[in-house]
Design a protein around this nucleic acid. Structure first.
Lengths: 323, 323
DNA sequence: TCAAAAGTGTTATCCTTACACCCATGT
DNA sequence: ACATGGGTGTAAGGATAACACTTTTGA
């Protein structure tokens, strides 16, 4: 077993693609790039990785993000490396192979660049359950996926059948909705040919042609897939790391904090339980001020206690089940 | 904001590096590659990614692993993409920049290749707590890290100080040991210059020169870092996915299953609680046979119930605290 | 009959979930 | 006074952690 040590490695272009998230007016938003070549679809900002200029991926990422957008991102985390042939293709593809290392970055909404951020639920309307189950699920998605599941009985080397995957991902047939399965849901829709990116990739929708409504706005290349990964990771991370505070202003009320968590996780939360959670985790401290912004009783203002990072090993907002 | 769309991407060599895990005789082992160029250090197997030959990373990985080792890996999962300049360097480095996409793969111990697998605790002796706290921690690691922590008060842009990181990662000073923080611990040792790879990278140990004992066997390139990532991920995944069964023979006793989980997580588990967990999760079914191998009362044999994958959304072995 | 390992029953505790109610302010 | 949102106490249920004890075999 020679372990490939003498194999020469294929030269490939490596790009860093960033899902840069901010929350404004109770709406999670991502930075979309101005489109080159009059492509009407939105895309995520990306830049090349130059190992000569930057010692690590993260340094490189911060550098070109700052250069392109004047945004200094705070929290940065690698998501996944995407390299499927075909899924990076654009209509005018040159044939060169590109792999993209996806990154999640969090920032406070910058004053100057606010217009460049788009609400992320434009791209994933079925992920916003804050006002109950989105209509698009029962009206379009689940019926179309059920039709797809009836076709193609057993695929080789697939652990689960189509029906089971539909159940688990979309909570059909009694299974609960899991807000963290954002990527699984998108991938299922892709496989079923129900998102535009899949059709662009040559995958024909299994269901009746022509009458498929657009399921969320498409993005360039595989960027919607990367965004789905970012949302899923952020929703999961909220529960065991205090990352929300990267998205909050310095002082805030508990309701504002709850609204931000709800915006990200796409669910409604139980007020009292949320508050106790924040309190027992000792994540915040009162400033003493109150805010009389919203018209009811003035709310006490809080700030994030930075010292929790030194005290507790995994301080997050482990928000529970339904509410 | 031009979004880098017209930027040309730097060509870089991309390799897939695999941590291939099997468990044999209650010992977790990884496949180490025969060393090229008489490098005495062990290394992980790796191969190039050729986008022309393989549509996805995973297909490429399975292909060269099968070709090089005649092993058909079962479960495969991407870990992380590593690209730090310097950390891939070997003594006779050519200067070409390489990034490696790390993968975790699980397999049953193959008959023919058993000799190529090394117990992973050779590389991380401080991670094996099955017989209590390893001596190397109190004898060497913690004292050396405390010495390191006393130096260098505050580093810029570091959220936590050295002392706090030591506490969280190694459970010094009252914090509990978290068996999932394998990577954090290795990275801390690396930063402190206490593992050989760091010294090779030019980082001088902060502590007294010359008398630093070797902390685990070193590996080539950044392979020990990738292995640490793999162990951490596997230890975490055990708790919410039934991945252990990828490492078990078709039939097994509950004690064998427990020993395997203990081997991976490096902890001793409470027998009764483990059994109830397995039972209530309905992960296994009795075969009806018994095994009289170990000398006491014969043990009932079980097999993995593949249908749980279709029933429950996240069936794992959520093993609890100390025991 | 004894060692060695398999296998079981039960309780205390904590955390999660959900309920229903009171408080302070502006109009 | 009342609408609006802020803020709290407490009990039911379930999961977890830990206890000690019985059973079946081989030597």
């Amino acid at each position: 077993m020679a372990a490939g040590a003498d194999a020469h490695l294929t030269p490939i272009e490596v790009g860093l693609t960033a899902a840069i998230v901010a929350v404004e007016a109770d709406e999670p938003r991502i930075l979309v790039a101005a489109d080159p070549k009059s492509d009407t679809r939105a895309g995520l900002p990306f830049g090349p990785f130059d190992p000569l200029a930057h010692r690590t991926f993260e340094i490189g990422l911060r550098s070109w993000v700052a250069a392109q957008t004047a945004i200094n991102v705070g929290y940065v985390e690698q998501l996944y490396t995407f390299g499927d042939r075909g899924r990076h293709a654009s209509p005018d593809d040159t044939g060169a192979h590109t792999i993209s290392i996806g990154y999640l970055a969090l920032t406070r909404m910058p004053k100057n660049a606010a217009g460049l951020f788009e609400p992320w639920y434009r791209f994933f309307p079925w992920e916003d359950w804050r006002d109950g189950k989105p209509d698009i699920l029962d009206d379009a998605i689940v019926p179309l996926l059920e039709q797809w599941a009836r076709g193609g009985k057993s695929e080789p080397a697939r652990p689960l059948g189509r029906k089971e995957r539909l159940r688990h991902c979309f909570g059909a047939g009694g299974s609960p909705w899991d807000e963290e399965k954002v990527l699984d849901r998108y991938e299922l829709l892709y496989e079923a040919g129900l998102v535009e990116e899949a059709r662009r990739d040559g995958r024909e929708a299994i269901v009746a042609r022509g009458k498929i409504p657009p399921l969320g706005e498409p993005m360039r290349f595989d960027h919607r897939r990367i965004l789905a990964t970012a949302i899923a990771r952020l929703r999961a991370k909220l529960k065991y790391r205090p990352v929300v505070f990267e998205l909050m202003p310095d002082v805030f009320t508990l309701t504002e904090l709850q609204r931000t968590v709800e915006a990200i996780s796409g669910r409604h939360l139980h007020k009292q339980n949320f508050r106790r959670l924040v309190e027992t985790a000792a994540l915040v401290e009162p400033t003493g001020e109150t805010s009389t912004a919203t018209g009811g009783r003035p709310a006490a203002q809080f700030r994030f206690r930075r010292d929790v990072l030194q005290e507790r090993p995994a301080p997050g907002l482990r928000v529970g089940g339904r509410a």
